[in-house]
Amino acid sequence: MSDVTGGIDMDDETEGVVKKFMFLNRKAPYGTIYALESLEVVLISAAFDQDVSLAFVDDGVYQIVKGQHTKGIDQKNFSPTYRALEGYDIEKLYVDKDSLEARGLSEEDLLVDVQVLDSAAMADKMAEQDVVISF
């Protein structure tokens, strides 16, 4: 891993090397642009054939709750797009259990299949990444 670039190498030597990228989502959708920006970067990252995972922590869990209807706020409802991730071979979606519970939510309230992880398991997932990109 390159210390300088945080592991993002694009030169020929490392072509074909698969690294573990985690996109860490901690912001609710619509109030700020983070959630949508993250999703777009995730979709683009799929083109690079890396080991991509998404983590939803704190208010980030609100990004994937069912029943979002944005007509009234005149913003695009991008929640259905999370269900397209599977088609992009992005199937590792991790959700922080404490964050869900703190918001009165459970796995059934989410619109995609996820793995709900306790703090220790989520901590391990983060620690094993080559690159963690925060939104």
């Binding site: 210390d3 592991g7 912001k27 080559d130």
Partner: peptide
């Protein structure tokens, strides 16, 4: 610190 660690994670 950044150089000593093999990776870093920013909390926004």
């Amino acid at each position: 610190l950044v150089a000593e660690h093999n990776n870093c994670q920013s909390w926004l």
